[in-house]
């Protein structure tokens, strides 16, 4: 099975790899894993005035999982929280041309986005509890 050019590009030049400090103001962290294949994904957003100003990821997994999370961070930047909620795994599948056996990688990326958003919301609702 050959990876699409876009997957290869993200894999070779991952965008926004790295991390923020978890307890930093406005940072939401999503940490997810796929027990079926053992892939692990960490996706973080930095929010200012309801706008995602920066996003970072770290992924341990196959090329498609890395590409999915790399693409997700690209898409997240500049979006509002509400817009970010609307990112679907199928959008990622389409953009990266993922084959059926790799669809779970895009699902993992969507889960990571959701988890990061939820974590941000939780911290925003009661900032003292996040410390």
């Amino acid at each position: 099975m050959a990876y699409s050019d876009k997957v290869v590009d993200h894999f070779n030049n991952p965008r926004n790899m790295g991390s923020f400090k978890k307890d930093e103001d406005g940072v939401g962290t999503g940490m997810v894993g796929a027990p079926e294949c053992g892939d692990v994904m960490k996706l973080q957003i930095k929010v200012q005035d309801d706008m995602i100003v920066d996003a970072k990821f770290k992924t341990f997994g196959c090329g498609s999982a890395i590409a999915s999370s790399s693409l997700a961070t690209e898409w997240l930047k500049g979006k509002t929280i509400e817009e970010a909620q609307k990112i679907k795994n199928t959008d990622i599948v389409q953009e990266l041309n993922l084959p059926p056996v790799k669809i779970h990688c895009s699902v993992l990326a969507e889960d990571a986005i959701k988890a990061a958003l939820a974590d941000y919301q939780k911290k925003a609702d009661k900032p003292e509890a996040a410390r």
Binding site: G33, P35, G38, F60
Partner: peptide, 10 residues
């Protein structure tokens, strides 16, 4: 079983 898969992979 899940955690074992993660550890096994790394």
């Amino acid at each position: 079983l899940s955690n074992r898969t993660y550890v096994k992979n790394i």
